[in-house]
Design a protein around this nucleic acid. Structure first.
Lengths: 130, 130
DNA sequence: CATATTAAAGACCTTTTTAATCCTATATAC
DNA sequence: GTATATAGGATTAAAAAGGTCTTTAATATG
């Protein structure tokens, strides 16, 4: 029921890029150093952020990371789901088959609501505001 | 970022007890059987529920579990926090020291809000309604 | 009181997830 | 072509999740 380290690092990474000159490509080394993220681990996370269309990665000399979207267009939810996958609070909401077999489950409704609220809250905050 | 199996089982357990004659002591065997919970694992969970003051456990012949509070007085949050501990969405909200050292962290605020909402939602549903 | 019933308590185990790290390959600027 | 940087796959260590096993203890009932 908690954000993983990878999720936390992803947020820090985007946060750092948002605070620099957004057009610049920032070296992984700098991001890792300033935001206290293990370098190699940052590689993995950056690759997921790139796959999700949030950053562009450049290899080679002068390589590094650059935001593709502007900070106004990136929400906390975007970043979290980029590294953790779709945000779900319980299995019940995943295993549709199993849950529906039990008929109308009142608990299900509550979880659906809770999940919706959480996603809305996280989707309501952009990195421009942070 | 997801409810554990233990949490899910705890909810099922209380749900089952709520649906029986509330004054009765129900055998662990019955709860486990009807709600599809591994027996031995249910023991561990029941002990936590007892420690949290939600159920009374009786050993010996005719022993089992009985609700102490009425279903109207037990919320989803009560049950979840009984087995999972205090509901927290990220480390940031735990490690006050570390987080406050960084000054006013905007991300912190968002998580605090999200956590509050989630807890409120879960605290707003009793087992009488489920 | 003896016995059957029933759960507790603690040790132990297995699998999965998390959180990295290592190493080789590859891309780019100069 | 060489130095600079990251990618990408394999591997690993630690922690958490999810149980199970075994021994102990409590209670009802004849």
């Amino acid at each position: 029921m908690k954000l993983t380290r990878a999720g936390e690092y992803a947020i820090r990474c985007i946060l750092y890029l948002s605070r620099q000159n957004v057009a610049d490509t920032i070296r992984r080394h700098d991001v890792a150093g300033h935001m206290d993220i293990p370098m190699q681990f940052l590689s993995k996370i950056a690759q997921q952020l790139a796959k999700a269309g949030l950053i562009q990665i450049t290899q080679g000399a002068k390589g590094g990371y650059r935001l593709i979207r502007s900070p106004e267009e990136i929400t906390l939810l975007d970043v979290i789901e980029a590294v953790e996958g779709e945000l779900v609070l319980n299995d019940c909401l995943l295993e549709h088959e199993r849950c529906s077999r039990k008929g109308t489950c009142a608990v299900h409704q509550v979880w659906a609501k809770a999940r919706g609220q959480l996603r809305d809250t996280l989707a309501g905050v952009t990195f421009a505001e942070l």
